[in-house]
Computed example of a mutant assay.
Amino acid sequence: MFLEAKDIVKAFGAFRAVDGADISVAENEIVGLIGPNGAGKSTFFNCLAGDAEPTSGTIRFLDQDLTRATPEAHARLGMARTFQVPVTFEDMTVLQNVMVGAFLRHPHRTDAQDKSRQVLEFTGLAHLAGSPARSLGTPGRKRLEIARALATEPRLLLLDEALAGLTPAEVRLAIDLVRKIQQQGITIIIVEHIMEVILSLAERAVVFHQGKVIAKGAPRAVVDDPAVVSAYLGHHMKRVRM
């Protein structure tokens, strides 16, 4: 299996933010993680990315045990992530921000710069290469996060609400970019609150509630799951399906 996490528990004292969650992801899939606020999906996501160490359970990626590995080890093996709140180096240019990611595989400045320009072209940011990161609005910052992650040449990209805060038109453009990324052979796990995004993009959805996985499957089948309706969607599900 490309990525497999088994019996993941993340406890904070007596509280289990993640309580025995499992996931398996095949190469070149797009898998969506959904659930209400506090459901445990973001904590589980952070465990997969190496930013939180599970209390128990195992995480294997490309046949390597990454359960307690550092974020750097995750990146070197081919796993990259974005953050819900974009993390940018404000006083650096857009190109320089992307080069931070490119240096992982390309230690020479010229090579890192060439790689970064390719990524900026791919993500539609080439015209902003020389602009300071602080000049970008929300859509640009979200796209810059993705570009910097792509510059590490990942095989698995973890997107943490990469489409949140965008207008409907911007969401459509971002969906197109995610599809282009998948077409490059990159597997994607996406945490997202916007159900329309999961329905549009994901081949499978994994639903969290109170730290547990309560449903898995094709997104439209998950929408109809009574446990999901009760725990998460409710009246919102009806709006999505209109």
Rank of each mutant, 00 (worst) to 15 (best):
V119R: 07
I194R: 15
I189S: 11
M99W: 01
V85H: 12
A49Y: 02
Q118I: 07
T67K: 01
D7K: 10
R141H: 10
R105W: 09
D160E: 01
H209M: 00
D225G: 04
P219F: 12
R239T: 15
R143I: 15
D19K: 04
F15I: 12
L159C: 11
G185Q: 08
E27V: 11
S230I: 00
P154S: 05
E53K: 14
E27S: 12
T58A: 08
I186L: 01
R134N: 14
A80L: 07
G78M: 03
K10G: 09
K212Y: 08
K10L: 13
G124K: 10
G124M: 09
S116T: 05
S42K: 00
V9C: 02
E145R: 06
T138I: 15
H236C: 00
A151I: 01
K216V: 14
A133Y: 11
L128R: 11
E72C: 11
F208T: 07
A5F: 00
I146Q: 12
K180I: 10
D7T: 05
S42W: 03
I175L: 02
A102L: 03
F2K: 09
A149C: 02
N28K: 15
L144E: 10
V171R: 13
I146P: 13
F15N: 08
R155N: 14
A14T: 13
I23R: 01
L62H: 13
H235T: 12
I175R: 05
R16Q: 02
A102F: 03
E203G: 13
T70L: 04
L159W: 02
P107T: 02
V206K: 09
P139Q: 05
H127D: 15
A75K: 05
A52M: 14
G185D: 11
E90I: 09
E153W: 07
I214D: 03
S116V: 07
A151K: 02
K10V: 15
R155F: 03
A49Q: 07
L125C: 13
Q118P: 05
A39F: 11
A26P: 00
A162N: 13
Q113V: 12
G40A: 00
E196N: 14
A49G: 03
K41H: 09
P86S: 01
L158R: 04
H74K: 01
H74R: 06
A147S: 07
G20P: 04
S116F: 01
S131T: 14
I34W: 02
L120G: 13
P71I: 01
R105F: 01
L62E: 15
V228W: 02
I175N: 03
L62S: 14
E90C: 06
E161R: 05
A129S: 15
P71K: 04
K238Y: 00
R148G: 03
R60T: 11
V171H: 08
R60S: 08
E192T: 04
Q184H: 14
R16H: 04
H235G: 07
V223I: 13
A80W: 03
A133W: 11
L95H: 07
